[in-house]
Design a protein around this nucleic acid. Sequence first.
DNA 1: TAGATTGTTAATCGATTAACAATC
DNA 2: TAGATTGTTAATCGATTAACAATC
Lengths: 207, 207
Amino acid sequence: MANDIPDIVIGRLPVYLRALRRLAQDGEKATTSSQELGERLGISSAQIRKDLSHFGEFGKQGTGYHIDYLIEQLRHILHLDVEWPVVLVGAGFLGHALASYGGFHRRGFRIVWIFDNDPEKIGVKMGGILVQPVEELEDTVRAEKARVAILAVPASAAQEITDILVEAGVQSILTYAPISLVVPENVQVQYSDPVVQLQRMTYYLHP
Amino acid sequence: MANDIPDIVIGRLPVYLRALRRLAQDGEKATTSSQELGERLGISSAQIRKDLSHFGEFGKQGTGYHIDYLIEQLRHILHLDVEWPVVLVGAGFLGHALASYGGFHRRGFRIVWIFDNDPEKIGVKMGGILVQPVEELEDTVRAEKARVAILAVPASAAQEITDILVEAGVQSILTYAPISLVVPENVQVQYSDPVVQLQRMTYYLHP
DNA sequence: TAGATTGTTAATCGATTAACAATC
DNA sequence: TAGATTGTTAATCGATTAACAATC
């Protein structure tokens, strides 16, 4: 069963989910509409309705979408009704920031292992988690069946660590290294390179 | 003169640039081809040629693209032949990681101001830069004509800080806050929310 | 010359939007 | 009932790709 639903649609669902959670938190109303959501996100209401219609009928004519119900549906679609344990590789400043970030909790993820190759870092606690030697990465991933990883290592180490992660069974990698990774097609990669993101904007700045 | 060239094309150029710089650094050859580049990036060669053709003719039949020359052209197109001073708001762990990141240098950016609202942080040096009180943000941005900002503040502060930045003249914002920002249409925003990125991948994981 | 690879065209493929019947 | 808003259709719009003449 291959994937019927466009990647680009899947990519928007977490953004919808985030906006819905905000609406739920504000607690002003129990329902919202594709129009209201679209205005907040800068997306057309038709697109939101179309995206959601790939998965079912979640709204009611005349009233819109029940916020809590739609949140539950999106969580289910995105497989967020379980908490995913995450392996973090790289315990530099960025690794430290990620390990200490409170935002994973309740949104589906928890960093539970941290690895680094620097003897100074090994044994240190970050976000309450002990930093382990990278030599143990492969065995740990395999034994614990970790499927989600975050890469916060220098470009020079990124492909090598990726190969280890993939070999050990990781299927989803969020990478901060400024390099394009080569992975098998069943492995998902999301890139976060601040420089690339900044460079996407300077085109529009007239010097 | 409005923008003729699709956003999606602009978005790929920094990725091409990054790959080209890697090739230049390896120093094995002076030229590359759309095919080689495409294989490294997982993009079709036709797309690379098409993207570049929006801006001119940079290659030669039979030999491909001269790497250094194409790098220079892309830098020029993306307005990276000047170094952009960047204002960073938020001096938490993430702000610290960004301030200490060596990767901005030589890729077109330099963080030169850091602001925070925490008295404990103000006066501290991060990446060699003094953290200043957020009360001075607006005046500094205006006086120094900063046009690029990075937001590393909690969701609760993000829209408020955004409004100040926009009011003071910032036109490009890279935000790490887990919230959709509302900005005028002449302001560019790039989002980096690790949870959203992870959530985009769990859809493809079968629990 | 033979081989390689560009830039571009036209065809294909895919995504977005406008509009509206259905219905809460 | 009147007003609002969904889910869906068909039309439009835009992006990608295959193919190839041009030419280095």
